[in-house]
């Protein structure tokens, strides 16, 4: 017997709705997060100068945004959808996709570290720029990998 909610949607339909919505959100948020890096690097203060109030707020917002995205990627979201829906939306295939996404993030971080090493030979880098760059790669790359894998598996339906 298929269990259905008030709207007539079964547990699986609700979980699949959550999966599609989550993939869409991660895709859009990942792109926005990436685009926002342009404004950070173009408007940041000169190397060694203290941050102004507005820049401190900007960095604070960036950290909060990064934490929210990381939580979404790591937990799969859907906190208010009920445990059964959440478990279905994070079933074996999704968990495998998440693991693969984090592995890509690891390799992306290592390659970004190597790249920054080379850049640091040519010009001085501020700690803020380095951390910002690494955090962005370590977050956006797994998000995009997760979206790619989820969409590919949906296409096989």
């Amino acid at each position: 017997m298929v269990s259905r909610d008030k709207s007539g949607a079964s547990l699986i339909e609700r979980a699949e709705h959550l999966q599609r919505r989550r993939t869409r959100i991660i895709w859009i948020q990942g792109l926005l997060f990436l685009l926002w890096q342009g404004s950070f690097f173009s408007a940041r203060p000169e190397f060694g100068e203290p941050l102004r109030r507005v820049e401190q707020l900007q960095v604070g917002a960036y950290i909060v945004w990064a934490l929210v995205l990381l939580a979404l990627l790591a937990t799969g979201g859907g906190l208010f959808r009920g445990r059964a829906v959440r478990e279905l939306a994070n079933d074996e295939v999704t968990r495998a996709h998440r693991r693969s996404a984090f592995v890509w993030g690891y390799w992306g971080l290592i390659l970004a570290c190597l790249g920054l090493y080379v850049v640091a030979l040519l010009e001085p880098l501020g700690l803020m720029d380095v951390v910002h760059g690494l955090l962005s790669v370590g977050l956006v790359l797994p998000m995009m990998r997760f979206v790619f894998l989820e969409r590919r598996s949906e296409r096989h339906g």
Binding site: I12, A15, E16, Q19, E87, L88, A89, D91, E92, V93, T94, S153, E154, H156, G157
Partner: peptide, 10 residues
């Protein structure tokens, strides 16, 4: 089985 349809597909 208690999985999503995507899992069965894949």
């Amino acid at each position: 089985v208690g999985v999503s349809r995507k899992t069965i597909n894949t």
